Simulated scan of single mutants.
Amino acid sequence: MSDTSLGKEAIETRVNTDLTRVSDYFALLKPRVMSLVVFTGVVGLVVAPGTLHPVLAITALLCIAIGAGASGAINMWFDADIDAVMERTQERPIPAGRVSANEALAFGTVLSVASVVLMGLAVNYVAAALLALTIAFYVFVYTMWLKRRTPQNIVIGGAAGAFPPMIGWAAVTGDVSAESLILFAIIFMWTPPHFWALSLWRDIDYAKAGVPMLPVVAGRDVTRRQIVLYSALLFPIAVMPYVLGYAGVFYGAAAAVLSGLFLVMSLKVWRKKDEESAKQMFAFSLLYLFLIFATLLGENLVLTVM
């Protein structure tokens, strides 16, 4: 084999290694979670009264994305031991040995600080403070304090995932209002039934890792009742944007129908008591949140154009 061929192979190997490295660092950011966080942040930004320069709007969303990803990286650093035990997380970069724990911690810390500083300097201090609170809540309150200590980890810790629309709203208005708190409350109330549906058919995994999810600690029947309770409480909160007047009839009708279906799915989980209904509930919960916020976003954009 010629020296030229050997050189090309060495370059290709190096490129492939670098691409794999980038892919692993990207995986630390929990891109699927990040995409939902950014989407709800977009909705808060668009629905908020007032305007924001497109460059600043993109900067705000970039900061939300980076902050969310940074939280995910620090979460993976802290949870590397239980990720190695749980089947669905064993291939994450740290337990798989592709990224060291120290690298993940440094990566997440730098991105956390950078996202908050950039948000404060480029957008406003209220949005930056909310972003800092989101990161701190997810890392210190949920990951380090609640997750391994109480079955209420998802109920309280769910607040971290509910902040993004408030951050988007604050990026435009510079404040926190009742309207943005309702957007927060929709996600906050949605989070427990969403994750408890997952834990109903992953409870063995959580038990093996020592994570006190509700079905592990209180049993599946209690978990099913709690899913129904939170689904029922979600219904009136989801229609509040229409009641308060910052969403139209189309959103109000869609929210009522979707929330009704959400409640029906939860009752099916409670009545049938099988794994399949829990899986269906989990899948529908993802679709539900997307459609609720997509409807609010789409209706607002149509009214703006008209």
Rank of each mutant, 00 (worst) to 15 (best):
M1L: 12
S5P: 01
L6M: 08
K8Y: 11
K8V: 15
E9S: 15
A10C: 01
A10Y: 02
V15E: 08
N16D: 14
D18T: 06
L19S: 03
Y25Q: 07
Y25L: 15
Y25T: 04
L28W: 01
L36K: 05
V37N: 05
V38I: 15
F39G: 01
T40V: 14
T40W: 12
T40R: 05
G41P: 08
G44L: 07
L45N: 08
P49G: 11
P49I: 10
T51G: 09
T51A: 15
L56R: 06
A57L: 11
I58K: 02
T59G: 13
G67R: 00
G69N: 06
G72D: 05
N75M: 09
W77E: 15
F78A: 05
F78K: 00
I82V: 15
D83M: 07
E91Q: 13
P93L: 03
I94G: 11
A96T: 01
R98H: 15
V99P: 11
E103W: 07
V110H: 03
S112P: 15
V117A: 10
L121Y: 02
A122D: 09
A122F: 04
A122S: 11
V123A: 11
N124P: 12
Y125A: 13
Y125W: 15
V126E: 10
L130H: 00
A132Y: 07
L133F: 10
I135G: 07
A136W: 04
F137W: 09
T150V: 09
I154S: 05
V155M: 12
V155R: 04
I156K: 02
G158C: 08
A159W: 03
A162R: 01
P164V: 01
P165L: 04
P165H: 06
I167Y: 00
A170G: 14
A171N: 08
V172T: 08
D175I: 03
V176F: 12
S180H: 05
S180I: 05
S180F: 07
I187K: 00
W190G: 08
W190S: 06
W190K: 04
W190V: 05
T191P: 14
P192N: 00
P193M: 02
W196Q: 11
A197I: 03
R202E: 11
I204L: 14
I204N: 13
I204K: 15
Y206Q: 05
V211H: 10
P212F: 09
A218Q: 14
G219I: 08
D221Q: 09
V222I: 12
L234C: 00
I237Y: 00
A238I: 06
M240D: 05
M240T: 03
A247Q: 07
V249F: 14
Y251A: 07
G252D: 10
A253V: 15
A255R: 00
A256I: 06
V257M: 13
L267E: 03
L267S: 04
L267H: 05
K268I: 14
V269C: 13
K272S: 14
E276P: 03
E276I: 08
S277C: 09
K279P: 12
Q280H: 12
Q280V: 05
S285G: 15
L291W: 01
L291D: 10
F293E: 09
F293C: 08
A294T: 09
L296Q: 03
L296G: 04
V302F: 11
T304D: 14
